[in-house]
Design a protein around this nucleic acid. Structure first.
Length: 523
RNA sequence: GCCCCCAUCGUCUAGUGGCCCAGGACACCGCCCUUUCAAGGCGGCGGCGGGGAUUCGAAUUCCCCUGGGGGCACCA
């Protein structure tokens, strides 16, 4: 990969070979929007540069990890459209892609042994209690807690023998006295002193690798060139740089993006309400709107556009245009974007997206009668449903609002109960009703509800209304009289969907009955 | 407590020394369009946390303060 784009990646020195990034969730819960944004940035970065985007499951914490979570995370990522090039399900040349499997293959133990042999790591036999006591003491003294290196001085063979004999032991990384420099594409240079980092554990007493070790071993093995992740990992980078050096490898280029905050300024969490991708899916947000919003949360394209498709984002995404400051999650802006994305949907896609919501609403609002009869999918009514869905499309903020609005579309107020019905007694109303009734055979029908059928029905309706309007003009009836009479006659209300939608969506039986009732009402 | 990060309208951002008495977007308010409600169009409200320093000139550079956030595990 030596295209011009690569020159736009300054930090971390020249990166030979193709760009390889990874998203590495631990399957201890569902996919959080914050993680989704991390995945998105990795995805956009890789796609923009023609590199590879890898999914790695970090399940070294057996107690908290579960395969259900792994499945749901993968399903959510796929739903968002962030397909990976290598991963546990599809494999790849750098597998396995689950840390549990890598651990079982002895990959971490082997790497740890090497560090042990080179004196860059050592066995530690300190008890949990002693460590906790020590930590408390340091905290009380106002120091940054770190291991006091009691076991660092142990004789190597002797320690190895004790460990081999089965004495519970961890393996600690021997932190060298050195200045640490983390060069970050988003943040620039950050300096740490190894003095504040204690000799951290790289292998637990249960034989599992700890996070800071497993990550480095895997990033090396998987030839990761750029690590894009949340800022909560910035201080981990300091440790990881040390491990990379100990293992004789250049660290990758780092990019730590800011975190997403709740309205109160604290890291977004459950107590702020919806936080997982699944929550938002359930609330009726489109994946395209979610990734659009998430991207904009701290990245901005060069121009002033706000609504972008995934493809457009891939085309323009650059890490150097990601802002450093934390961003507060703003549901109102997501709502706005969601509305725009819904309006962009082709009818077929809209109908598809609406299915689960209509199904879910079907049971609860059975009182909707006809509306729900249609919503639950009576075949011959699907044309009318399609019209209602189209009618409602421009006012939707979320898909979840659709059932209610569609129900309203079909739920007509009886004239006897209608305030507005008085107006039907106005001069001209009778003539309008006669005229509409006389044209019954020209009332549009949306047939099977296909996009073409709906479009045709709507066009026919507009043409019909246009003619009526012309006829009214000749009889000195105001257009307003035409529109209001028909609307009130059909729905019993003064506001609602445009007339063409009503005419093609209500169904000829209903229309005939309503118009006739209105006619009787006028006299 | 210690270490690290961050700091432009209520919110998300543009801005990399003069083009900025700061541009866009969401929200809010008003107007237009419209048979109605939306959508859409137009306009309004509103901001560089504070103090020093550098400079002819600072939102942009440096220092201090303040505020916010993250990290300090045999979790990731």
């Amino acid at each position: 990969m030596n295209d011009a784009n690569n020159s736009a990646v300054p930090a971390g020195g020249p990166v030979p070979g193709p760009v390889r990034v990874r998203f590495a969730p631990s399957p201890t819960g569902t996919l959080h929007v914050g993680s989704a944004r991390t995945a998105l940035y990795n995805y956009l970065f890789a796609r923009h540069l023609g590199g590879s985007y890898i999914l790695r499951i970090e399940d070294t914490d057996v107690a908290r990890s579960s395969s259900e979570h792994e499945r749901s995370i993968m399903a959510d990522l796929a739903w968002l459209g962030l397909e990976w090039d290598e991963g546990p399900d599809i494999g790849g040349d750098f597998g396995p892609y689950r840390q549990s499997e890598r651990s079982a293959a002895g990959l971490y133990a082997h790497a740890a042994q090497r560090l042990l042999d080179e004196g860059k790591a050592y066995y530690c036999f300190c008890s949990q209690e002693r460590l906790e006591e020590q930590k408390a003491r340091m905290l009380a003294r106002g120091e940054m807690p770190k291991y006091d290196r009691r076991c660092a001085a142990l004789e190597r063979e002797e320690a190895a023998a004790r460990a081999a004999a089965g004495e519970p032991a961890t393996i600690r990384f021997r932190v060298p006295e050195t200045a640490i420099e983390v060069t970050d594409i988003i943040h620039g240079r950050t300096d740490f002193s190894s003095g504040v980092i204690g000799d951290f554990i790289i292998m637990r007493s249960d034989g599992g690798a700890s996070y800071n070790f497993a990550v480095v071993v895997d990033d090396i093995a998987m030839a990761i060139t750029h690590v894009i992740r949340g800022e909560d990992h910035l201080t981990n980078a300091a440790r990881q740089v040390l491990v990379f050096q100990a293992m004789g490898h250049e660290p990758p280029a780092w990019a730590h993006h800011s975190l997403i905050m709740g309205p109160d300024g604290a890291k977004l969490s459950k107590r702020h309400g919806a936080t997982s991708v699944g929550d938002f899916r359930g609330m009726g947000y489109l994946p395209s709107a979610i990734i659009n919003y998430l991207a904009l949360l701290s990245w901005s394209p060069a121009g002033e556009r706000e609504k972008l498709s995934k493809e457009e984002m891939v085309g323009e995404f650059e890490l150097q245009r990601v802002s450093k400051s934390p961003a507060i999650f703003d549901l109102q802006k997501l709502n706005w974007l969601n509305g725009l994305h819904i309006r962009d949907l082709e009818l077929e896609d809209l109908r598809q997206a609406l299915v689960p919501f209509l199904k879910a609403a079907g049971g609860e609002t059975a009182a909707g009668g006809e509306a729900m009869g249609i919503a639950t999918g009576a075949e011959k009514s699907s044309g009318r449903l399609a019209v209602a869905e189209t009618a409602v499309q421009t006012s939707l903020v979320t898909l979840a609002e659709a059932p209610g609005l569609i129900e309203e579309f079909f739920m007509l107020t009886p004239l006897a109960e209608s305030e507005a019905a008085r107006e039907l007694k106005e001069e001209g109303s009778g003539a309008v009703l006669e005229m509409a009734l006389a044209d019954e055979r020209r009332w549009p029908d949306a047939g099977d509800g296909s996009a073409e059928a709906v479009t045709q029905a709507l066009e026919a309706a507009r043409a019909l209304i246009k003619e009526w309007k012309k006829a009214c003009k000749q009889s000195d009836i105001l257009p307003k009289r035409l529109f209001r009479t028909l609307r009130i006659a059909l729905t019993g209300r003064e506001s609602g969907p445009e007339l063409p939608f009503l005419l093609s969506g209500l169904g000829s039986g209903t229309i005939r009955q309503r118009l006739q009732a209105a006619k009787e009402f006028t006299s």
